[in-house]
Design a protein around this nucleic acid. Structure first.
Length: 216
DNA sequence: CTCCCGATAT
DNA sequence: ATATCAGGAG
């Protein structure tokens, strides 16, 4: 995508979602890390329902270590992928205590060493908890970037991230990341994207293709 | 690449 | 019935 169209995308997203933000409820970096870990292949809404009780019951890494695995599994069962997630939360808590004084390290390279924390989760924690510029590429960011033609269809999530970092000014990385998610979640949805009323239709390769299929 | 996985939308 | 949801590990 050329510079002019990219600027149009950024301006339009800003108009559509001026105050996009992290929709995962959390009070600190530790809770945010747990929430993002739980959010894999699950809606934010569902995660928030579960963490409302979870964060009342568990406050520190020690609390997660103290509980039997089976009990923690039941506490998060409604999220899905719950066995892996419960195991990761306990291992992550253990590692935090052993190597990080029980605190979430504000360093990307350290975060990805934590069980259940990959590049995307680390980026979310860095940007939302530690105010560090980052673009986390989740399912929405990837889908939207590819549909609009910001990046190639066959790009990996890492390539998508690198392309976005190159095309977006660094000071706008975090906000743009949130706007791309809102755009993907509420407008350019996986099923039933709102192409008919999309202000970006003129520059959207996929959107124009979809509209053609509809009229014919 | 496959597996993990319940809940919700379509 | 099937697709999708703020992915990560083996």
């Amino acid at each position: 995508m050329n510079k002019k169209n990219m600027q149009t995308v950024l301006d339009t997203l800003k108009e559509m979602f001026p105050d996009a933000y992290c929709e995962l409820d959390h009070a600190n970096a530790f809770e945010l890390t747990i929430a993002v870990l739980l959010s894999a292949q699950c809606t934010d809404k569902k995660v928030n329902e579960v963490t409302a009780d979870l964060f009342q019951k568990y406050k520190t890494p020690d609390d997660y270590i103290a509980v039997p695995l089976e009990e923690l599994e039941q506490d998060i069962k409604r999220i899905g992928l719950y066995r892996n997630k419960a195991k990761n939360i306990k291992a992550l808590s253990q590692l935090l205590i052993e190597q990080y004084n029980g605190e979430i390290p504000p360093v990307h390279e350290e975060l990805v060493k934590l069980p259940g924390v990959g590049r995307k989760t680390a980026n979310v924690v860095m940007s939302n908890a530690f105010d560090y510029p980052a673009i986390a590429v989740d399912t929405h960011v990837e889908r939207v970037s590819k549909r609009l033609g910001i990046c190639k269809w066959k790009d990996s999530v890492l390539q998508v991230e690198q392309t976005l970092m190159k095309k977006v000014p660094k000071e706008e990385w975090t906000m743009t990341h949130h706007r791309l998610i809102f755009f993907g979640r509420y407008h350019c949805k996986a099923q039933n994207p709102q192409c008919e009323i999309c202000p970006l239709l003129e520059l959207c390769r996929e959107g124009k293709k979809r509209m053609k299929v509809k009229v014919s």
